[in-house]
Computed example of a mutant assay.
Amino acid sequence: MSKVTLIDYGAGNLLNVQRAFEHLGAQVEIATTPEQVLAADRLVFPGVGAFPQAMAELQARNLVEAIREAAPQKPFMGICLGMQMMFEQSEEFVLTPGLGLLPGQVKPLPHFSMTGEEMTIPHMGWAKIRPQGVSWQNTLLAGVAEENAFYFVHSYYAETTEPQDQLAVFDFGGHAITAAVQRDNLVGCQFHPEKSGAGGLRLIEAFLQI
């Protein structure tokens, strides 16, 4: 049985993520201390809320350095804000340093489409993801069908410095917005796999097999 540790910084409801992993037979533990993070077999970081507040909560619990130490050494998945916090910094409200696991910056979603129409923000709902110059073979998304849909809720997105880190994008008014990232054992999803039906469960299952 795969063991998965969810990082809990006191700001998010982990229950849906926990249920999705348990549905696939994983043994789920909740980490609230640095020691639990460092001892984990594989780490999942679901994030909700605002980037500055979430980083402050991690700092208050002494979890930042533990995540930075543990993440490169084991399978690590960031979900939604958890994916954004994998990057170097965010422009949400004030410029805030992130975990720095991947090079890049978190920016507001474009307020206007490529043809000048006003976009609805936050972006909420289902969207199709597609490769962006990177093959999905041997990645977390290898089993994702060409016709797919994943569930998103966000107002900011991650702009990757290294193009090869951007595993998938979705169309937002003609803009190609980061949907998923992967570098070695580090993976991140802007969408919520735990709310994305069978497709999301297949992705979680792929993470359990890394």
Score class of each variant (00 low, 15 high):
S2Q: 08
L6N: 05
I7M: 10
D8A: 13
G10H: 07
L14F: 00
A26V: 03
E29G: 08
A31F: 00
L38T: 13
V44I: 00
V44F: 02
F51L: 02
P52Y: 07
L58M: 02
Q59E: 08
N62Q: 13
L63G: 12
V64K: 05
V64E: 10
E69R: 07
Q73A: 08
G82C: 08
M83A: 02
P97H: 10
G98T: 00
G100A: 00
G104P: 09
Q105T: 15
H111M: 11
T115D: 15
G116W: 00
M119V: 02
M119Q: 15
H123N: 13
H123D: 08
R130I: 04
S135F: 12
A145G: 03
A149L: 11
F152C: 15
V153Q: 05
V153Y: 02
S155Q: 10
Y157L: 11
A158V: 03
E159C: 09
T161P: 06
D165V: 10
V169F: 00
V169E: 06
G174F: 07
I177Y: 04
A179G: 09
A180G: 04
Q182P: 15
D184F: 00
V187D: 08
E194Q: 07
K195S: 15
L203T: 09
E205I: 02
E205P: 05
A206I: 04
Q209T: 11
